[in-house]
Design a protein around this nucleic acid. Structure first.
Lengths: 241, 241
DNA sequence: TAGTGGTCTAGACCACAGC
DNA sequence: CTGTGGTCTAGACCACTAG
């Protein structure tokens, strides 16, 4: 038996759903029935059905049974790019040029996208470069109350985003993606015409109840694309053995 | 006991990781130790640790033990918008205006973004409208070999994307997001100036080995933003009870 | 109220990788 | 070699809810 039994049971049912043999709303066999069919214990069947439920392929209701869920998968996995890594992976040399760096105290920014709560805040503006060509402009606020160590970090070696990724685990994050026209400052920094299309990525990050950082990155059009993928296997927690 | 025990064990360890008490690379207690600490069976502990492993918070190695995973996940959950639903949720009226619809056979498009394999293919061009204002231009190819029923669908009631979402489960999808300048055709259809910034979303979808559909949506800047979120609880499969 | 899933137990054998 | 996680068993009790 090269494949675990609960994995085979899960795979059998998943195949039925994806091939259309099992239509949305259809009732699956009960755990007791599957137990008899595969000649195994109930825990084994339960593990398979729980995985399908976690993946959203199956809806389980007490007393009623397990049902094929309506195709509702509106979610994909979005890669959060680590720019130095992405750039070097493309065979280019990465650099971060710091434009501004200051510490302010507790003032409201007036812009909800950059609010990281009360206390001392580190504000950074910089440019990501690939082979010395500007790739993106980054504006960032970091709460020094949550991340005091970053006040003394030099961003010569790595940009603030990478520093944070390496040092601060986060529990919650929110990303907003839009297309905008370049304003005067971004046009200069990115070497593009004013009103040229830019990809704007806003991200806010929490650690528990505390806001860690808020960042806005504006990419030159064509300089970098975002990718997202979805695989049923990922959602079902299948091992990539 | 309002909370399942395996959930409490998982929560305890997760809290330790996120608070920094458990640093990346630290070794967790073994299943046997946790079993003794919580006074429960090994299966219960295993369920908690498996969930943390699936969430990417913990790395488990045979003979070595369980360790706090070092770099945090670089991935978030991207909402795949169902435009009619999004638009009506904003209190606007949604409509889809069909511009082109034709069936071609097996020819190569020359554009990899729209390749859905051999056989008969339905090609659609249309505009998504919110309160009669153009929101996005959509170009789509659908493989009629995989989805024959769509050949006779009228898109008066719902756009092809929604039709597919309701009728065809998919196993794998890939999305690419970029900012572009409007070409002549899109400028006319969206009522914007040529070269105005647009948010372009390309998506290809598979069902098993077969390519189901390939779509390109170009949104007016500011008309619609993409959102992505991440919560540790989601990844750990915690129920939202 | 009876059937279903949710959870848990106290064992067990095995594969695997560090020691 | 030995400890670890991966898997599985044959039971059990409970909560919930649809019939």
């Amino acid at each position: 038996m090269s494949q675990p039994l609960h994995e085979r049971i899960r795979s059998d049912i998943e195949t039925g759903i994806l091939s259309g043999t099992l239509a949305p709303g259809d009732r699956l066999s009960t755990e007791v029935e599957l137990m008899a069919r595969y000649g195994c214990a109930r825990m084994t069947v339960n593990k398979a059905l729980s995985a399908l439920s976690a993946a959203g392929l199956v809806d389980r209701r007490k007393r009623a049974g397990s049902f094929v869920a309506s195709p509702r998968l509106h979610a994909m996995v979005l890669d959060v790019p680590d720019l130095p890594q992405e750039v070097t992976a493309r065979g280019q040399t990465y650099a971060f040029r710091l434009i501004e760096r200051r510490v302010r105290t507790a003032k409201a920014t007036g812009d909800a996208a950059f609010d990281v709560g009360a206390g001392r805040v580190l504000e950074i503006v910089g440019v990501h470069l690939a082979d010395d060509l500007p790739l993106a402009v980054e504006q960032r606020c970091v709460s020094l109350a949550v991340v005091p160590a970053i006040e003394h970090a030099s961003f010569a070696e790595e940009p603030p985003g990478t520093w944070l990724l390496r040092n601060i685990p986060w529990t919650e994050a929110e990303t907003r993606i839009a297309a905008i026209g370049a304003d005067a400052r971004n046009a200069v920094l990115l070497h593009v015409e004013p009103d040229a299309p830019l990809l704007r990525i806003d991200r806010r990050t929490w650690r528990g109840q505390h806001r860690v950082t808020a960042v806005r990155q504006c990419f030159r059009a064509g300089a970098y694309d975002l990718w997202a993928r979805f695989r049923t296997e990922d959602a079902a927690g299948r091992q990539t053995t």
